[in-house]
Lab assay of single mutants.
Amino acid sequence: SEIVVAMYDFQATEAHDLRLERGQEYIILEKNDLHWWRARDKYGSEGYIPSNYVTGKK
Rank of each mutant, 00 (worst) to 15 (best):
R19L: 07
H35W: 11
S45V: 13
H16S: 13
V54G: 00
L34G: 12
G44W: 03
Y53F: 12
W36R: 11
I49S: 01
G56L: 15
V4K: 02
V4P: 00
I28S: 02
K57C: 13
Y8A: 09
E30L: 06
I27Q: 09
A6G: 03
D17R: 15
A6N: 04
L29A: 01
V5I: 13
S51P: 06
E2S: 09
H35Q: 11
Y43D: 09
Y8C: 15
K58A: 14
H35A: 09
I27Y: 10
L29N: 00
P50L: 05
L29K: 03
Y53D: 02
T13D: 08
Q11A: 12
D33G: 11
L34M: 12
G56K: 12
Q24A: 10
A6H: 00
S1H: 14
L20N: 01
Q11L: 12
G47C: 07
Q11K: 11
F10W: 15
Y48L: 13
H16C: 15
L20D: 02
F10P: 00
Y48N: 08
I49P: 01
G56P: 15
E30M: 10
I27M: 11
G23C: 11
H16Q: 12
T13V: 14
E25A: 08
K57W: 09
R40T: 05
E2H: 11
T13K: 13
H35M: 12
N52E: 13
K31F: 05
V4Y: 11
D9I: 04
L29R: 02
S1Y: 15
A39V: 11
M7H: 05
T13S: 11
A15W: 12
F10T: 04
I28Y: 03
S45Q: 14
N32L: 12
G44D: 04
K42H: 06
D17P: 08
D41W: 02
P50Y: 04
H35T: 11
G56I: 14
P50K: 05
I49R: 01
H16Y: 11
Q24F: 08
G44L: 03
E14L: 12
R40I: 07
G56Q: 14
Y8G: 04
V4R: 02
I27G: 02
Y43N: 11
T13N: 11
R40P: 01
Y8I: 08
S51T: 08
E25W: 11
A6I: 04
G56W: 14
R19S: 15
D33Q: 08
S51I: 06
Y26C: 01
